[in-house]
Write a protein that binds this DNA or RNA. Structure first.
Length: 406
RNA sequence: GGGCGGGUUCCAGAGCGGUCAAAUGGGGCAGACUGUAAAUCUGCUGGCGUGAUGCCUUCGGAGGUUCGAAUCCUUCCCCGCCCA
């Protein structure tokens, strides 16, 4: 069921941020169709951060399309680089991983990828295969292929250089290592987020040096995080993880700013361009309420990772909790041995709802704490002589506390 | 090797002998409002403790001067820029 190059292009070019260079990409597709040889499509993975979020999914979805069109997907586990310790930028201590950790992380990573596409059909390689054995002489020869000013073209290097912030020498080596990966797997296409443009282009240079046809580059848009400003990333804490529970996923999706609704619809739930456009119009015309639009996006998102039932349930629960301010139907139960009388402050800390007593006092003073539905107003309040309480902090932190007397 | 500028609370960044747990912004949290964990507004944001202008621990590390130090001195570590 091989589609023509043109049809493939139409599918693959949809929703990309950029394809570089466009004509080479088309030529590769045409040749693939003619010869029946699938394209080798590379995706690099960072095993130091195995938690996938829905921003990654934008790329994986595209990869899935390649796979469905019969092309060969290649995952490169960056185990070698992870073992050395990625310095990139400001993250101060990103400790070097052991081989075992790297392996375990890679496994988790691929499990999560498996939610979105068929990992069993993909080629999985570790870059330690070819990087670990390089001699220093080879590294120098490699480094000689690129100039410092070329390196400084890269956005973040440039930026840091301008701002007089440190750039460690070995940071220059990472793009080179990544580029070597492309050479070693003979990638026809490399796919990633738009922030990878420089690295991917550098890989083309290395491939040319190695006498290979340079890879085409498919760049996917970077999804903004739930804060609506910065790109989604784990370290910024503005992400929705692929493994988030339905409730969390739904809630986080509901917390995105209105301006992001259509974008999430499109790139997080993979609505078609037409659907997205339609939503946009309805929002503008006022026929679709932003809240409802967001709920639709949230529900579709949950449905993708947890199924339709879970999605519906998450939606109902969200309405119950936030529109009607009732309790969720499942509350974590914490059992503690505390002797009466127990102060509310102590209970909050013991139940793990707040990190310190000072914090608990602050929250009470601000009216953010309730016990069995009644707001606590007194910092020195104590729990009544009963064995079970529902503690609530803010709008969405609940615990059912069971006290056992000793 | 030399010169200069730096290392402050989650982040950025003021402070430069007491009035500093430390300005301001960001982030986070809470409240009000609401259409949601949107937006907006308000408050809080080291720990312990309370009828408190209370106690303790923090300003790269270690010492020291002083009644008193984030602020001065010594030394060590780290970073940036420039010159060589």
């Amino acid at each position: 069921m091989t589609l023509s190059a043109r049809e493939q292009y139409r599918i693959l070019a949809d929703s990309v941020a950029e394809i570089l260079p466009e004509d080479e990409f088309v030529a590769k597709l045409e040749r693939s169709v003619q010869t029946g040889v699938p394209l080798r499509v590379k995706l690099g993975c960072d095993p130091s951060r195995p938690d996938l979020h829905i921003g990654h999914a934008v790329v994986l979805e595209k990869l899935r399309q390649f796979q469905e069109l019969g092309h060969q997907v290649i995952f490169i586990i960056g185990d070698f680089t992870a073992m050395i310790g990625d310095p990139s930028g400001r993250s101060k201590t990103r400790p070097a991983l052991t081989l075992e950790e790297t392996k375990a992380n890679a496994r988790t990573y691929l499990e999560q990828v498996g939610i979105l596409l068929d990992v069993s059909r993909a080629e999985i390689r570790h870059n330690s295969e070819w990087l670990a054995g390089l001699t220093f002489a080879e590294v120098i020869r490699l480094a000689a292929q690129v100039t410092v000013s070329q390196m400084l073209e890269r956005d973040d290097f440039h930026d840091r250089f301008e701002r007089e912030q440190p750039i460690a020498l070995h940071e220059f080596l990472y793009p080179l290592a990544q580029g070597l990966d492309s050479v070693h797997v003979r990638a026809d296409v490399e796919i990633g987020g738009t922030d990878q443009r420089f690295n991917f282009l550098l890989a083309r240079e290395l491939q040319k040096h190695a006498g290979q046809e340079p890879q085409a580059i498919v760049l996917m848009p970077l999804l903004e995080g739930t804060d609506g400003v910065q790109k989604m990333s784990k370290s910024l804490g503005n992400y929705i993880a692929v493994l988030d529970s339905p409730r969390e996923m739904f809630g986080k999706a509901m917390s995105i700013p209105d301006t992001l609704i259509v974008r999430y619809y499109r790139f997080a739930t993979f609505a078609t361009a037409e659907q997205a456009q339609q939503m946009e119009q309805q929002l503008q015309a006022g026929t679709l309420h932003p809240r409802d639009a967001k709920a639709l996006v949230a529900e579709r998102l949950v449905a993708r990772y947890h199924g339709d039932d879970a999605a519906r349930h998450a939606r109902e629960e969200f309405d119950r909790m936030f529109r009607h301010k009732q309790l969720p139907d499942e509350i974590e139960i914490v059992e503690l041995e505390l002797a009466h009388p127990v102060s509310v402050v102590d209970a909050l800390v013991a139940a793990g709802l707040v990190p310190s007593k000072s914090e608990a006092r602050r929250l009470i003073a601000q009216g953010g704490v309730s016990v069995d539905g009644d707001r606590v107003t007194d910092i020195a309040a104590r729990l009544a002589e009963q064995s079970e309480f529902t503690l609530k902090v803010g709008k969405r932190r609940f615990v059912r506390l069971r006290l056992r007397s000793r």
